Amino acid sequence: MLYTDQTGRRVDIPSPPQRIVSLVPSQTELLYDLGADVAGITKFCIHPEEWFRSKTRVGGTKQVKPEVIASLRPDLIIANKEENEKEQVESLAKDYPVWVSDIHTLNDALDMITSLGDILSKRHAAHQLTQNIRDRFDLLQPLQTAIPTAYFIWRDPWMVAGNDTFIHQMLHACGLRNVFEDIPRYPSVSLAQLAASGCRLVLLSSEPYPFKEKHIEEIKAYLPDADVLLVDGEMFSWYGSRLLHAPGYFNELLKIFR
């Protein structure tokens, strides 16, 4: 059957596919929670643990191994515009059906879940999941007075989430104002820029860079009066079924500032 992915490409996918390769960690977890199965995953697909331990690994999100994928004879590869390399996705699409997600907002994520539910013949499970996610986000209590915030994803160079990112949307949902919202995607910034930004809260993500307590002191040297916190990056950036847990996590995090 022909399906349209989130980049507007038409993809011919057998109904339902039987040998799926997922190149996106958050969507791998989603497939499991929808009751689907996979033949291959990346080395970063850590949830669920039983798949991480047992499924064939096809490389990383940025460096897949075409020969391993070929050995699995996939009838569907699930990729993401941001997380996977464009050239590799285009190369794989010459030989296999590749469905690409493109997630910027919560609605994009919910549309992705619904679409994969259709493709996998898991429509009821997808509907229940999206409704549960909506219900839980309805319980999110954003701050009434926005706090100027920076969200770091990398060090050396220091990189933050700018606008046009899912992380930016999650910050907004929490009532936090991204001080780098005028810069697209994931810009490199200096700590001097951070100090001049008016930032009052710095969030250091657990992924893709594993920030630790020692990095808090580096930030504090430039922003001694700001709050600097380590946060669970999966809650801010995973746009599959992990969204069920994000609103509760955000509410607990925001309690500090109420």
Rank of each mutant, 00 (worst) to 15 (best):
F44E: 03
C45H: 01
I46Q: 05
I46W: 00
I46F: 04
E50T: 14
F52D: 13
S54K: 15
S54V: 04
T56Q: 14
T56M: 13
R57G: 01
V58W: 08
V58Y: 09
G60N: 06
Q63S: 11
Q63N: 13
E67D: 14
I69Y: 03
A70K: 13
A70D: 05
L72R: 09
L72E: 04
P74D: 03
I77N: 02
I77R: 02
I78D: 01
I78L: 15
A79C: 06
E82M: 06
N84C: 09
E85R: 14
E87H: 04
E87W: 01
Q88Y: 04
V89Q: 05
V89W: 04
V89T: 10
S91K: 13
K94P: 00
D95M: 09
V98G: 12
V98K: 10
W99M: 11
W99C: 07
H104I: 07
D108E: 02
D108L: 00
A109M: 04
D111Q: 14
I113L: 08
I113D: 05
T114K: 14
T114P: 00
G117W: 06
G117M: 08
D118H: 15
D118F: 13
L120A: 12
K122W: 11
H124G: 05
A125D: 14
A125W: 06
A126Y: 12
H127R: 14
H127I: 03
Q128S: 13
T130L: 11
N132M: 13
N132V: 01
